[in-house]
Amino acid sequence: MIPAAFDYVAPRSLPEAVADLVKHGSEAKVLAGGHSLIPLMKLRLSTPSFLVDIGRIQDLSYIREADSHIALGALTTHHEIEFSELVKARLPLLQQAAAQIGDAQVRNRGTIGGAAAHADPNGDFPTCLLALDAELIAVGPRGERSIKAQDFFVDTFTSALEPAEILREIRIPRPPSASSGTYLKFSRRSQDWAIVAVAAQVSLREGRVERVAIGLTGMGPRPLRAAAAERALTGKAVAPDALREASAQAADGTQPPEDLNGSPEYRRHLAAVLTRRALEAITGSK
């Protein structure tokens, strides 16, 4: 299992990297942690002739708290997110997702920017970013732009990034203080991709659900929001019945895939069960 031959550069800055991408056009691919790309290249399912390794660009790995948001550098590893006290305190949903990706070695190499750009509908981070209303900051030949998560994940393995754009930063709005989240992942073995996973973030005010976001993994060609369930719960008092009723609508409007791990029907059912369990865990109401 040896990849096809390619040429390689490891630029030291984002502008250099963008220039490399512009120069080599569709022949080029960005290499970050490599945990999505390298296995595909070894199977020769992906045969780029040019790799731009952004791993040596300074200052793309950080977790910082700003006034309105938490900023994560695109090269921040899953491990760094998993072990970040800041993320654990402010974004438990993201911390829990990080801790469940692959295994320890994969988490040491994989990056949040890479996971987002790969846009795998079974990936964990894309769903979290969607549920947390993240903004993704990309740098390209025409400068920098911000893309909302809901616009970023376009289709299976397809993001809104232009060919020569590179993710620089991911910004997640600071949730209000009376807000919490969780990521529940269902898979056959612990190291596997999710069959279905649910990212839920709930903000409460005086015993009522002020705002709820529910992201779904594995339920379609891209990460989805459980819009009907969110609508059903918003404004409701926290009570077991309300959570159940809303959860039952978690899969509304989705067309989940059929594969060796489950039918669309089973996935829709799992989405409802996991949504209810996530909401129960967050609100303590059962």
């Binding site: 390298i38 295994d103 320890a104 994969v106 040491n108």
Partner: peptide
Amino acid sequence: DTSNCGACTIEMDGHSVKACTV
């Protein structure tokens, strides 16, 4: 070859990695 089995695990700058996927 697909970074599932971990037989190739080493440490790189203090972090365990699967050397078949680097």
